[in-house]
């Protein structure tokens, strides 16, 4: 593969510029809590294989945006399109529509949310059996592959409570991957971890990005945003302030709000 092909395969903005279809498309997506506007008409396109980092001050709506994509929080205006499925937020979503949408989206939470009463293996296998209808044997095989991939095959028979935070988050990543999603959403995946444990999670995410997985990552990890993601988007007050190739946005931001945010992060 030439470098160009690799870029194209990864979905990064290609020099050749052939018209490619975005995997995720948000049109005028909005969300309100009472009178408070959390998301103010977000337009966003994510190409297949693109890794998008969303950064910004807390309360800017970045987590809500992520949670609106798989309708964990239903948006109240606009459209969410993932692949061939398009949901109109103004109309109540039917259960089968929601299920189809969620089939293609995997999600990783800040607080892992593993099932504490099941073994690690069971955590990864359960949804494969219930949602994809795999047999226990096939599900467990796939789970073991994924657990090996995140370096935790030896923890399969343990309960999550016996694992470190970093290990739990890697298990949660394996659990989400087990359903073969088209896109992975990460909601501050390392914020609940001390820096050292965060690194092992970031390493798994970097590896995942290299395999061409489409990823949207809400994060405070500036080095991940700069070095791993293809695109960085800055949010504040429910709006997109700036979005572009990660190196440009991180090193040469155009907007005053972005500069202020990045300065605050660097000054810490």
């Amino acid at each position: 593969m030439t470098e160009d092909d690799a870029l194209a395969a990864k979905g990064a903005p290609s020099e050749k510029g052939q018209a490619r279809k975005p995997l995720i498309k948000l049109d005028k997506l909005s969300k309100h809590y009472g009178n408070h506007t959390v998301l103010d008409g977000i337009d966003l396109e994510v190409m297949p294989g693109e890794v998008l980092a969303i950064i910004g001050p807390s309360g800017s709506g970045k987590s809500t945006l992520l949670r609106c994509i798989n309708y964990l929080e239903p948006p109240d205006g606009g459209h969410v399109t993932i692949g061939d499925i398009s949901l109109n937020a103004a109309a109540p979503a039917g259960r089968s529509e929601l299920s189809t949408l969620r089939r293609s989206v995997g999600m990783v939470f800040q607080s892992f949310n593993l099932f504490p009463h099941m073994t690690v293996l069971r955590n990864v296998s359960l949804a494969q059996e219930r949602v994809l209808g795999r047999s226990r044997k096939n599900a467990d095989e796939r789970s073991m592959q994924l657990l090996s991939r995140v370096g935790l095959a030896d923890k399969a028979e343990q309960f999550p409570g016996r694992c470190s935070g970093g290990q739990q988050q890697r298990i949660a990543i394996a659990r989400a991957l087990a359903l073969d999603p088209d896109v992975m959403l990460f909601d501050e995946p390392t914020s609940a971890l001390d820096p050292e444990l965060g690194l092992e999670v970031l390493a798994v995410m970097r590896e995942l990005a290299e395999t061409g997985m489409t990823m949207i990552v809400v994060t405070h990890e500036m080095s991940f945003a700069e070095n791993v993601s293809d695109t960085v988007m800055i949010m504040a007050d429910g709006k997109i302030i700036e979005k572009g190739p990660s190196a440009d946005v991180m090193r040469n931001p155009q907007q005053e709000r972005t500069k202020r945010f990045l300065r605050a992060v660097h000054d810490r």
Binding site: N70, L72, S99, R102, R103, V105, G106, M107, F109, S111, N113, L114, F115, L126, A127, R130, V131, R175, A176, L179
Partner: peptide, 14 residues
């Protein structure tokens, strides 16, 4: 914990 419900929804468990 509500996270258990959320994880179930995200995993598309019925």
């Amino acid at each position: 914990h509500f996270g258990q419900w959320e994880a179930s929804s995200a995993l598309n468990l019925g």
